[in-house]
Every structure is written in structure tokens, then in C-alpha cells.
């Protein structure tokens, strides 16, 4: 999954404009994704990318678009 595809999926699920979604964008502060939406987003992403689990180390893995992309793609390879 390329980062471009990942951005598009986040835009589709969270209804955030695509142009706001970049690697350093904070889900909470810039994209205004609240904690419950974030949970739905992660569940939906793992279903779409067919991931049984991911290797979560800390909350920082869920803070920005880039960190979440890394978390989801590490498990894929």
C-alpha cells in the first residue's frame, strides 16, 4: 500500500479533506479526529488491509498520519 493510497483511505473513512492529510498531520490537533473516531479508523484500516494485528509500541504510534502508516505497513511486509 503506497502512502498516497493510505491518505485516500483515511480521507474516505474520516471524512477529512485529502489536502489536509500529510505525514506530520496530528490526528487530534490538525485533523480533529476524536478518540472514538480514531478507534473506528484503526479498526476499519486493519479490515481493509487485512491485518490481524499490528505491533503497537506506544500511543505515539497513533499520533500522526505518518506514524500510523508506518505501524500499519510494518506488519504487512
Amino acid at each position: 500500500m503506497s502512502f498516497e493510497e493510505f491518505r485516500q483511505v483515511i480521507a474516505d473513512i474520516s471524512k477529512v479533506p485529502l489536502e489536509k492529510i500529510h505525514k506530520d498531520a496530528s490526528f487530534r490537533d490538525e485533523l480533529d479526529v476524536d478518540s472514538l473516531q480514531m478507534v473506528n479508523l484503526i479498526v476499519e484500516l486493519t479490515a481493509r488491509f487485512n491485518l490481524g494485528s499490528f505491533n503497537l509500541q506506544s500511543d505515539k504510534d497513533l499520533e500522526t498520519v505518518g506514524a500510523l502508516y508506518q505501524l500499519m505497513t510494518m506488519e504487512e511486509s
Binding site: 478507534v39 479498526v43 486493519t46 494485528s53 499490528f54 503497537l56
Partner: peptide
């Protein structure tokens, strides 16, 4: 159901 899925997923991930 969706929060249960999340609980399951995060549990496995941890």
C-alpha cells in the same frame, strides 16, 4: 460490536 473488535485487535497487537 465495533468496540469489541477494537478491543480484540488492540489486545492482539499488544
Amino acid at each position: 460490536p465495533s468496540l469489541f473488535k477494537a478491543m480484540d485487535l488492540f489486545g492482539k497487537s499488544l
